[in-house]
Computed example of a mutant assay.
Amino acid sequence: MENQMDNPPNDYLVWSILSCIFCFWPTGIAAIVKSLDVRKAVSMGDREKAERSSKITKYLILATIIVGVILLITVIVIQVA
Rank of each mutant, 00 (worst) to 15 (best):
M1Q: 13
Q4L: 15
M5K: 01
M5H: 04
D6C: 02
D6P: 00
D6R: 07
N7W: 01
N10L: 11
N10R: 10
N10Y: 08
D11K: 00
L13P: 01
L13D: 12
L13S: 15
S16K: 03
S16D: 08
I17P: 01
I17G: 07
I17R: 13
I17Y: 10
S19Q: 00
S19F: 06
C20F: 06
I21L: 13
I21T: 10
I21G: 03
I21D: 02
I21P: 01
F22L: 12
F22G: 04
C23T: 04
C23S: 12
C23K: 03
C23V: 03
C23W: 05
F24W: 15
T27C: 07
T27P: 04
G28V: 09
G28A: 04
G28M: 03
G28T: 10
I29S: 05
A30Q: 03
A30H: 03
A30W: 08
A31F: 07
A31G: 06
I32M: 06
I32L: 05
K34A: 15
K34V: 13
K34P: 00
K34E: 15
K34R: 09
L36R: 10
L36F: 13
L36T: 14
D37R: 07
R39W: 10
R39A: 11
K40D: 14
K40C: 07
A41C: 08
V42S: 06
V42N: 08
V42M: 08
S43C: 00
S43N: 14
M44I: 05
M44V: 00
M44N: 12
M44T: 10
G45C: 04
E48L: 09
K49T: 15
K49L: 14
A50F: 05
E51K: 03
E51V: 07
E51N: 04
E51P: 00
R52E: 12
R52K: 11
S53A: 15
S53H: 08
S54T: 03
S54V: 00
K55H: 12
K55P: 00
K55Y: 09
K55A: 15
K55V: 08
T57V: 07
T57K: 02
T57Q: 02
T57W: 10
T57D: 07
K58E: 14
Y59V: 09
Y59P: 01
L60T: 11
L60Q: 11
I61E: 04
L62H: 08
A63K: 00
T64P: 04
T64M: 05
T64Y: 08
I65T: 07
I65A: 10
I65R: 06
I66V: 15
I66N: 05
V67E: 02
G68S: 06
G68V: 08
L71Y: 13
L71Q: 11
I73K: 01
I73T: 12
I73Q: 04
T74Q: 05
T74C: 04
T74E: 06
V75L: 07
V75H: 04
V75Y: 00
V77E: 05
V77M: 12
I78L: 14
I78D: 11
I78V: 13
Q79F: 13
A81V: 09
A81I: 13
A81Y: 10
